[in-house]
Amino acid sequence: MPLSHVAFLILSAVALISGGLVVTRRNPVRAALWLIVALFSVAGIYLLVKAEFLFAVQIILYVGGIMVLFLFVLMLVNVNVSVRQAPFNRQWRVALATALLLLAELAYGFWRGAAPRLKALAPVAAPSHPLGNTQAVGMALYQNYLLPVELVSLLLLVAMVGAVIMAKRRFD
C-alpha cells in the first residue's frame, strides 16, 4: 500500500472517530475540541489530494475563525448544568432516520461507483491545472460559477443582517 493510502486511512479514521466523539461528549467545550480535530483531519485529506488552497482555507476559516467563535459562545454555558442534562433529548428518532437515509444514499453511491474495493476509496489527486491550484479555484468561482457564488454571499448577508436585527430587538 503506498504511503498516501496509509495517510488517507489514518486521516479518515481520525475524522470518523472524532466526529463520533463530538456527538457523544456531554461537555460542550470538549465536543467543540473534537470537532476541531475532525476539521483538521479533513484538511489533511484535502492536502493529500493536492488541494493546498482548500487545505489552507479550511484551517483559516473553520479552525481559526468559526470554531473560535463557537468556543466563545460555548464558554458562556455553565458546564455543570450541561453535563447533567441527557444528550439526544427527544430528537434521536429524527436523527436516526436522517442518518439511515444518508447511509443508504452513500451505499447507493458506492454500489453504482467503480470498484467496491479499497482502491475506489483511496484519494485521487485532482488533475493539475496549468495555472496552479489557487488560480484554478479562483477562475471556477468568479468566472464559471459567478452567479451562484454571489447568490450564496447574498444569502449569508441576509442571515447576518437578520441576526443583528434580532439581537437589537431583544436589547431595546
Binding site: 467545550v29 475540541l33 476541531i36 493546498e52 488552497f53 487545505f55 489552507a56 482555507v57 484551517i59 483559516i60 479552525v63 481559526g64 475563525g65 473560535v68 468556543l71 466563545f72 464558554m75 496552479g132 491550484n133 489557487t134
Partner: peptide, 25 residues
C-alpha cells in the same frame, strides 16, 4: 517555499488563539 505560503502561515498562527482561550476557560 509552499505555493500557498502566506495562507499556511496565517492558518497555523491563528491556531495560537486556542492556547489562550482554552487556557483561560
Amino acid at each position: 517555499n509552499p505555493n500557498v505560503g502566506i495562507l499556511l502561515i496565517l492558518g497555523v498562527s491563528s491556531l495560537g488563539i486556542y492556547g489562550i482561550i482554552l487556557g483561560g476557560w
